[in-house]
Design a protein around this nucleic acid. Structure first.
Length: 554
RNA sequence: GCGCCCGUAGCUCAGCGGAUUAGAGCGUCUGUCUUCGGAACAGAAAGUCGGGGGUUCGAAUCCCUCCGGGCGUACCA
């Protein structure tokens, strides 16, 4: 409907002045109407005329020829402010976002934790953001495949294996049974820190770790599940995946498939080797991609041990995703520390499979810092863990409400992570996130439950919003009418935070309406019930898009 | 050094090249209503949009430069 209106206005401009112009319609402040356009300012430049003069003519023509426009007024330097007829506004409020990705296959990769390591706050962040983006693509009509990539091979695994074997006093897989099930994740993270420190502090340990790293690749190549070393590896690897799955269940994020690096490494290795000469080159015993030719960094894809680095595994991953899905688009969501790294990988793939990088979008986010931030050092393992964030939120919520409410806690964390624009670091304040006042997840969940309670025990199944609105109803409908646009914008930019901002404004608009409009028992009950219904539905679907539950009761 | 990102009210953040007062929330101050879930509503104080130049009829927004912070920069992921 908006795009039709844009075309109509463009046609008016064309017929009056003979220029093709792109008409933008923006949402102005309330006192200026429902929509605003600045086409006349743009036209004035080309025509060398006074913008106001053009605006007068165009607005007159709009008012006369476009029936859904109730009023068109010239303002300021030559804006045209439009007021829609109530019926049109209601129709707009009823509109669903267009399915821009209809028929497209999209692979969304996010979260990407490494087996044998602990889940930190960043994993929680990327999981939440990635899931919201995947949801956006889904409402846009895409067939979305949610996948997860992680390093079950690599130097960090060598470090962990070294520390495990050291702790077990040798390659004794049976001794793993002594670790209580509940302690496995913390046990693993403990030994990882030990292995990490040993690698840096002891030459002897370092050599052993490098050897273990190779042995891990070997056991994959030989499909070894029998040797004591392999048994230790497979058992503790499974501990990691159990821990991940439990975590994802807890936060309500689910993946279709894991791509462990052990599965992408062989393909990556093979692909890189195939292109030594035309894409990659030998240098100091390693295989590199000389990114400096293209203004990028030079990076190692196969190290001098002959093992694939993360780079080669990522090449393998892209190829594997392509084999599995033949995607139209691949969205990868990670921390922003690997922006330049990813450019190198994609640039190298571009040399032999140009369409894959072309279809790949790398979206990045910053890190999660705790409000009142203490410095945290990852070397000693005392960084902010995913579980810590959830714990802090649960504690803050219980301190505030005296209750344990998983749905509210999760809503609080997710909303807090999503409401800022994607890209930079975020500062997480548990207290603020669970607060029931202000721009928070629980506030919106409550707003939804409150609206539902009005509808409870009333039969409004046949109610419709009528054509004539009073002032307070109209303000609410005006806000509701932005819904589809906001979601479309979030989809276009793949930025979920627009939806957060909007939902909060919507809830405020509703509270204002509700403050001075009686619903039940009022002569306008039927229109108002339909309005409440539409509002509650929009709020719920918006929250769901963000991956946040909207319960009927709280 | 080079490259990328960031710097908007006390704090946490929005802000689509265009409208007289740059917007929210929290915090501070002041009001409203015997509430259909008040977890509400109305209002006030609070900003040289990091500094300086430039482009434009018009810049928080685009360009340059300086300052401050973060990240990246060949065998980690």
């Amino acid at each position: 409907m908006i795009s039709i209106l844009q075309d109509q206005i463009a046609n008016i401009c064309k017929s009056l002045y003979g220029y093709d112009t792109e008409v933008e319609l923006t949402r102005p402040e309330v006192q200026f109407g429902d929509l605003t356009t600045n086409v006349c300012l743009k036209l004035a430049k080309q025509l060398n005329m006074r913008p106001q003069e053009i605006a007068e003519a165009v607005s007159r023509s709009i008012a006369e020829t476009i029936p859904i426009i109730a009023e068109a007024k010239v303002a300021g330097p030559g804006f045209i402010n439009l007021t829609l007829a109530d019926e049109a506004l209601i129709q707009l409020a009823d509109q669903e976002p267009t399915e821009k990705y209809k028929g497209q296959v999209v692979v969304a990769e996010y979260s990407d934790p490494n087996p044998f390591k602990v889940l930190h706050a960043g994993h929680l962040y990327t999981s939440i953001v990635g899931d919201a983006i995947a949801n956006l693509l889904e409402v846009a009509g895409a067939e979305v495949h949610r996948v997860n990539f992680g390093g079950d091979v690599g130097l960090h695994v060598g470090r962990t294996m070294w520390a495990i074997i050291d702790r077990l006093g040798g390659e004794y897989p049976d001794k793993l049974a002594d670790v209580p099930e509940a302690d496995r994740p913390s046990w693993l993270s403990e030994v990882y820190v030990i292995g990490n420190n040993a690698y840096e502090d002891s030459e002897e340990a370092k050599a052993q770790i490098i050897d273990y790293n190779k042995k891990v690749y070997d056991l994959h190549n030989n499909n070894d599940h029998e040797s004591p070393f392999a048994q230790i590896y497979w058992t503790t690897r499974q501990w990691s995946y159990d821990y991940f799955n439990e975590f994802y269940d807890q936060i309500g994020v689910h993946f279709e498939k894991y791509y462990p690096e052990s599965e992408t490494a062989p393909l990556g290795l093979e692909t890189v080797k195939e292109h030594i000469g035309d894409v990659y080159e030998q240098s100091d015993g390693a295989v590199i991609f000389n990114g400096e030719k293209y203004g990028l960094h030079t990076r190692v894809f196969i190290n001098s041990e002959g093992l694939p680095t993360y780079e080669a595994k990522d090449v393998g991953l892209i190829m594997k995703k392509w084999q599995d899905y033949k995607f139209d688009q691949s969205v990868v969501i990670t921390g922003n520390d690997i922006i330049d790294y990813m450019k190198v990988v994609l640039r190298s793939v571009e040399m032999f499979m140009p369409k894959l990088p072309k279809r790949t979008k790398h979206l990045t986010h910053g890190i999660v810092k705790l409000a009142g931030g203490k410095k945290m050092s990852s070397r000693k393992g005392n960084f902010l863990k995913a579980a810590d964030v959830l714990d802090y939120a649960a504690q803050a919520n219980e301190a505030l409400t005296g209750k344990q409410d998983r749905v509210a806690v999760l809503g609080a964390v997710k909303y807090a992570f999503l409401k800022s624009r994607l890209g930079g670091d975020i500062i997480y304040d548990p207290k603020e996130s669970v607060s029931t006042e202000g721009n928070s997840g629980p506030y919106l969940q409550y707003a939804h439950a409150r609206a539902r309670s009005i509808l409870r025990n009333v039969d409004n199944s046949n109610e419709q919003i009528l054509g004539q609105l009073d002032d307070s109803e109209r303000l609410l409908v005006r806000k509701l009418s932005e819904s589809a646009e906001v979601i479309e914008r979030s989809i276009d930019e793949l930025l979920p935070h627009h939806i957060c901002t909007y939902l909060y404004e919507l809830a405020q608009a509703f509270n204002r309406f509700y403050e001075n409009s009686r619903v039940i028992g009022d002569p306008r009950e039927s229109t108002r019930l339909a309005l409440v219904q539409l509002y509650a539905d929009r709020l719920k679907s918006g929250l769901n898009l963000l991956g946040i539950d909207a319960p009927d009761h709280m």
